[in-house]
Amino acid sequence: MAKANCPLPTSNLSEILDKYKQSPGSLLEILREAQAINGYLSREVLQLIAEELGIPESKVYGVATFYSLFKTTPTGQYIIRICESAPCHIRGAQDVLATIEKTLGIKPGETTPDGKFSLEFTSCLGLCGVAPAMMINDQVFGNLTGDRVREIINSF
């Protein structure tokens, strides 16, 4: 994932828009690919998408904020998504979360000051067989304990 503070690469965005403009219902695809450029969807990006697709900005914003994986504020280089759904909960996800919070000094929804890590909750990752589990960007980690999670974070 690109750094959070790099400038808006309009050329990439217009490529994405050109690719999807003709196929109806591809707002989610556009938002996902647009988000991949900067790691989040800035106000300017949403405005541009709305203009190009000829739909109200409020609608684009409404869709972007409905889905939990779209971000309208900058995120860290690595997003730690900790699963707090029932199977992870009953196998001690709270303790894992407490360790991450302590190690990084951030709470869910926050980003470390150096912009390296963001911490958030995720819905079930389907890794219930190895609960408690988490993802860092696209990488999966299971059977977490306090020690293991510290080790994993330090390896990034």
Binding site: S85, P87, S123, C124, G126, C128, G129
Partner: peptide, 10 residues
């Protein structure tokens, strides 16, 4: 598949 605890579809 979103039900917490179900992962057969995955």
């Amino acid at each position: 598949e979103g039900d917490p605890g179900a992962f057969m579809d995955r």
